[in-house]
């Protein structure tokens, strides 16, 4: 009986504690981003005078920060528009190239019996755990020597090599769930293996391919270390992440303007994330669920 009473007492405590914890967690997760948006709309002197304001005062809202941060340096702005272009080129390029190499690769690892197919995914995944800073040294030296450091295409190649493994791993899991019997039926109808892959399995895997594309896009858009090592010397090549980090160190650019830059950097990712959240969450934990 006392067990039941203690159980009830614990339930009552939890009934109170749980909503508090949830609200606290939400505040922890969301407040920094709210603060980012808030500061991007407040004039700098207002922030310095009243740093504790939790919402903008009436008539205080200022879009000027966005104009400042986006206009080119020639017109006195920070030139984020060109950073956005560079980031987009790098991210889209990485997505396209990664899919081109990893869709066939994932299909092969999932479906085809060939020597070393099991080992190959282990090797690829091992890459994922390697210290990026260790890889950074030889790649830095290599691209410097062939004169390709400082090019966006060089960076894309490096990114593809880093994400191809994860991409193959995610896609393979999906190919594994498509029944092989579908392709066998196609084979009996006279399809070759490659035709069966193109006409049967690929269309079925489209949702996984789409979420994988978004995942790779987010990694490439957010990446910092290699962008820093490869592109830092030439401002016209900076990505949004790199540009923001470089300008954040200077005292000449007001914090509120850079907050507008942060919002510009973050918004695409948050939008993509909410579009693909269901798939991504599923993909990230595919390994854990089957335990």
């Amino acid at each position: 009986m006392s067990g039941v009473r203690r159980d009830n007492a614990e339930r009552r405590v939890l009934a109170v504690a749980r909503p508090i914890i949830i609200v606290l967690l939400l505040v922890i997760c969301l407040f920094p981003f709210y603060y980012m948006v808030l500061l991007s709309f407040r004039p700098l002197d207002a922030v310095l005078q009243d740093p504790g304001a939790l919402w903008p005062q009436l008539g205080e809202i200022d879009w000027g920060t966005y104009r400042d941060v986006l206009t080119s340096t020639a017109s006195g702005g920070q030139g984020f528009l060109s950073f956005i272009r560079n980031s987009a080129i790098v991210a889209v390029g990485t997505v396209v190239l990664t899919l081109v190499v990893s869709i066939p690769g994932a299909y092969a690892v999932s479906r085809l019996e060939f020597f070393g197919r099991r080992q190959i995914s282990a090797v690829f995944l091992g890459v994922y755990f390697f210290p990026a800073i260790l890889l950074a040294i030889p790649l830095f030296v290599f691209f410097t020597r062939i004169g390709q450091r400082g090019t966006l295409s060089g960076l894309v190649v490096v990114y593809v090599a880093q994400v191809a493994a994860v991409s193959i791993y995610m896609l393979r899991n999906y190919f594994d769930t498509i029944p092989a019997s579908l392709e066998e039926a196609a084979a009996i109808d006279g399809c070759t293996r490659l035709q069966a892959m193109r006409h049967i399995s690929l269309p079925l895997a489209l949702p996984a391919i789409a979420s994988n594309a978004l995942f790779v896009f987010m990694i490439a858009w957010n990446e910092f270390l290699f962008a820093l090592l490869f592109l830092v010397e030439d401002r016209s090549k900076w990505t949004v992440s790199l540009g923001l980090s470089q300008l954040a160190g200077s005292i000449e650019v007001p914090t509120t303007v850079l907050m507008a830059g942060s919002v510009i950097l973050t918004v695409p990712i948050i939008v993509l994330f909410f579009l693909s959240e269901r798939w991504l969450a599923g993909g990230l934990t595919a390994g854990a669920e089957k335990g």
Binding site: V100, V101, S102, P104, G105, Y107, A108, V109, R111, L112, E113, F114, F115, R117, I120, V123, F124, V127, F130, L134, L135, I137, P138, L139, F142, V157, V158, V160, A161, Q162, A164, A165, I168, R193, L194
Partner: peptide, 24 residues
């Protein structure tokens, strides 16, 4: 299958080999 397997995995294998394994 074996031929197709090697063919399909080779682009990834090459890029990972050149950009990850060799650098290490």
């Amino acid at each position: 299958d074996r031929r197709a397997g090697y063919m399909l995995i080779s682009p990834t294998a090459v890029i990972v080999f050149v950009m990850v394994v060799l650098p290490i």
